[in-house]
């Protein structure tokens, strides 16, 4: 008798073979399903098989959240400088330049005003593609100005985080952006203007330890990594095995740090519902 019995259920011959030749297929990192670009796009960049939320940039997020043509970008061209003359394996100046050319973005966040189902909002969305969504002076300044705008217009503020934390190449100046954004949010709070923080995969380090965790409402996408110290650092520091689901959205909800978890496809409707409740 053979030691291993072949499971017949797993072998399917009826399914038509997928043509993967056109280069538009993505492999889901969670369930390994191959999905066509068009299918993902029409499904809000969510895996049709397991519901994994693919990482997307501000462009895609704005498209699925905001009313058509309603986004008016502000402070688009604020650019990073190199206050420390920082150089690791590459000079910071060069890194910025290369990233701008590669991503077509000016820094790790885009901000502006827009409408969500006709409701006016001030909105910002981070781009992980820009040096890991790191927060340096530009991110701090743009968030700070977005808060000023919200105070001036009395529109609710929505910030979508996707960030590895503070930008090391700006040293303590990056660190000060935590204080800068948090103190501005305290000012917004005094004006009783709602601030909704949306946390996507990943939101860690300096962003989590400042504006991302300070929402009147904290909303997370499913299974997003949300942490102060990332899992690798925690494992290294403690030498312990991490509990299942550690630092994922569901874990944070369970521990009381997230108000709700919302699927990307429901995000616009859920925001509309909340904004209307706060308006009335």
């Amino acid at each position: 008798m053979a030691w291993f019995k072949r499971s017949k259920e797993n072998i399917s011959t009826n399914e038509p073979k997928k043509d993967l030749s056109d280069g538009n297929w993505f492999k889901c990192p969670d369930c390994s399903e191959m999905i066509h670009k068009k299918t993902i796009e029409s499904n809000f960049y969510v895996c049709t098989h397991c519901g994994h939320h693919f990482r997307i940039g501000s462009e895609e997020y704005f498209k699925l959240l905001l009313d058509e043509n309603s986004f008016k970008e502000t402070d688009k061209k604020i650019r990073a400088v190199d206050p420390l003359d920082f150089e690791d394996t590459k000079p910071y100046k060069k890194r910025i330049e290369d990233t701008i050319n590669k991503t077509d973005l000016y820094d790790a966040i885009r901000t502006g005003t827009a409408k969500i189902n006709t409701i006016d909002v001030v909105i910002g969305c981070m781009d992980f593609a820009f040096i890991g969504g790191s927060m340096g002076s530009v991110v701090g300044e743009k968030i700070s100005r977005a808060i000023d705008k919200a105070i001036k217009t009395k529109y609710p503020l929505i910030l979508i985080s996707s960030s590895g934390g503070a930008r090391m190449m700006e040293g303590a100046i990056s660190l000060m952006q935590l204080a800068k954004t948090s103190s501005k949010l305290a000012k917004l709070n005094n004006e009783k203007i709602p601030y909704i923080s949306i946390l996507t995969n990943p939101t860690t380090g300096g962003s989590t330890a400042s504006f991302s965790m300070l929402g009147d409402l904290n909303i997370a996408e499913p299974k997003a990594l949300i942490a102060f110290a990332g899992p690798r650092v925690v494992k290294q520091a403690t030498g312990k095995d991490l509990p299942p689901g550690f630092q994922k959205s569901e874990f944070l909800l369970e521990h009381g740090f997230i108000d709700l978890i919302v699927n990307r496809k429901d995000m616009k409707d859920k925001l509309t519902q909340i904004l209307k409740l706060l308006q009335n």
């Binding site: 701090g140 000060m176 800068k180 501005k184």
Partner: peptide, 12 residues
């Protein structure tokens, strides 16, 4: 608040 608000270096 102004003190921390002014921290940062960038090109406008």
């Amino acid at each position: 608040i102004k003190k921390f608000g002014e921290m940062g270096f960038f090109k406008d």
